[in-house]
Every structure is written in C-alpha cells, then in structure tokens.
C-alpha cells in the first residue's frame, strides 16, 4: 500500500453518504402505498452500500411504481410503459461501471413488457430488478392486471377477473439463464431490505417480486396475509437470508431452503398460501451478457483508424501500380 493512511481516511470521509444524500422530494404516492416501503428499503440499501449517487441509475417504466426514480437523488430514467428493462440493458451495456436498478409494476413487467422480462432474464445483465406487484393497474384507475387473482372485480372485469393470475415467480424460474429470483412483501421492512440487499450483491439479473398493497384500489385484499403472520412462510438458509430473532418471533412459519435447489424453488414458487418470502433461487455462475459482449479494447482514434482502414482495404480498388 503506497497511500498514506490519512489519505485513505480522507477518501472514505469524502465518499461517505447519509440517507438524506439519496432522498429527493416528497413522494406523491397514496398514504399507505407499498411503494413508500420499497423506496425506504432502497435508500437504506444505497446508504449501506455507500453507493455513489453520481454513478447510480434508477430506470423505470410507467405507472405508480415507476415514479420511484424521481425520489432518488441519483441519476434516473423514467421511461415508457413496459420498456424499462431494455433501456436499463442499454445503459449497462454502454457503461458497465454504473450501478443500475430497475423498478416496474405488474402491468409494466408482466403484461406490456413481458417479452422484455423473459429476455432480460436470459441476458442476465447485472441489474437489480424490482417488480412492484400490487396486482392491479393503479395509475389508470383499477383495471385487472395479469397478476390479479381470478374473480377480482375491477373496472374492466366488473364480474370478476376471468383468468387465473400469472405467476411471475414460476415464469422467471422457467427462463434459461435465470440467476436470482426472490419474493418479498412490503409489510415486513426488515426482510424486504435483506432480500433487496442480497439481490443487489448478486452479480447478474436479480429479480425480486414485491407483493405490495394498493390502499386505494384493493385496500383489504392482502389483509389476511398481513394480519396473520402464520400465512407468511419465511425462507432462510446459510446461503440465503438469515432471519433475525425479532422477525422469527412473529413469523413462525419457516422453511430452510437452499437457493441453489432449483426443483424445490419451483415448488415454492407455486405456493400461494402461506405466501413464501425470501430467496427462491440463486446461481452465481451464470455469465452476464455485458461480460460476454464487453470489448476490453481501448478505442483510441488510432485504433479505430487502423480498423477502419483495414475495412476500407477490403472494398478498395487501387489504381494500377498502387495496389496494397
């Protein structure tokens, strides 16, 4: 180590960030909206990891969930409905050194952007992806979403939703190259934070489905699970998340689940009641698309010129005597 200790300290001091460094503005979500819990957990995560706000980007789609970047004092890109993932992939490919988060709603991810969701999992770029799943379209005022439970009455399904809900966990686990799938609920902040933290630390695309309450359109829908802790099943493991004593006291339904066990993960993914919470699957060995594609060459003008001239040569007709 050549740097003097004082210099190191100075650097640490310079780069240290408080929670406030990541906060921006006052949220305009409805009181009691689960998005607030997610925002708090994310800001806490940024502070814990001391992320440089200048090199952090939050990309979102459209909907209540996608307002999140506006409340982060980092770089943000509030995109268009369904396209958060391909935008985030472009950012990551162009600038792999940036930390990129993605926030989407259930309409965003599982409906209009479903193709991107499937392929994003397959690309496995190093992104932390949050699915804010409140099982309803909020901003457009209560239409059934793909994750709405069958029978749910909404403005587009006045007699109740016709189809069984799409399960984002089983879909994600079915995609080639899946490397991290987790589920959390907005009403257990500690576990929400722990899972998001693990997702962030995972190298690859970490997909976190967050069951989120919508106090405006579905005020009581998740109450049975919120009010009865036994209907939440905590997944814990040495290689997953560990449950703190205070959480363990309340949430007594648990399962020790090894996140490398894909078969069991798929079984758990299909469970609805009790609702599984924790890391379902993790595989650190799946290559990231940006690493497969990244070109380590420094593109100096001289390098580009050399390559370009060689390409020109392929198509050049030289005058006689000048042939190269």
């Amino acid at each position: 180590m050549s740097a003097a200790p004082t210099e190191c300290l100075l650097r640490l001091y310079d780069e240290h960030h408080e929670l406030e460094d990541y906060q921006k503005g006052v949220t305009r979500w409805c009181p009691g909206c689960g998005d607030n819990a997610i925002l708090t957990a994310v800001q806490r995560l940024c502070r814990t990891e001391n992320l440089d706000p200048v090199k952090t980007v939050f990309v979102s789609g459209i909907g209540c969930s996608s307002r999140l970047p506006h409340y982060m004092n980092t770089y943000g890109f509030h995109g268009i409905h369904g396209r958060a993932l391909p935008i985030a992939e472009g950012v990551k490919m162009s600038r792999p050194e940036l930390t990129v988060f993605v926030n989407m709603g259930d309409g965003d991810c599982c409906s209009i952007g479903a193709a991107h969701w499937v392929h994003a999992i397959r690309y496995n770029m190093d992104l932390t992806v949050m699915l804010h799943d409140n099982q309803i379209y909020g901003l457009t005022k209560k239409q059934a979403s793909p994750t709405s439970p069958i029978g749910l009455k909404s403005n587009t399904t006045p007699k109740g939703a016709y189809l069984e809900a799409l399960n984002p966990l089983t879909v994600s686990l079915g995609v080639t190259n899946v490397s991290f799938v987790a589920q959390v609920v907005d009403w257990i902040p500690e576990v929400l934070y722990d899972v998001l933290h693990a997702a962030f630390l995972h190298k690859g695309l970490s997909f976190v489905r967050i069951l989120q309450r919508c106090p405006e359109w579905l005020p009581n829908m998740l109450d049975p699970w919120v009010q009865d802790p036994t209907r939440v099943k905590l997944l814990y493991h040495e290689d997953g998340i560990k449950v703190s004593p205070s959480v363990a006291k309340v949430y007594t339904t648990t399962e020790e689940h090894d996140p490398s066990n894909m078969n069991r993960a798929r079984e758990i993914a299909s469970e609805v009641d009790p609702v599984p919470v924790g890391i379902l699957y993790r595989n650190d060995d799946v290559p990231c698309y940006e690493d497969l594609r990244r070109d380590p060459t420094l593109r100096t003008p001289q390098f580009v010129k050399g390559g370009l001239e060689a390409e020109f040569d392929k198509f050049t007709i030289w005058p006689e005597g000048e042939e190269h």
Binding site: V57, F77, I80, I87, E89, G90, V91, K92, M93, S94
Partner: peptide, 9 residues
C-alpha cells in the same frame, strides 16, 4: 429502447 439507454449513458 436499448439504443436509447445506451445513448442516455
């Protein structure tokens, strides 16, 4: 969208 993300960055 990918091109837009890359340009944005």
């Amino acid at each position: 969208a990918f091109a837009i993300g890359a340009s944005y960055a």
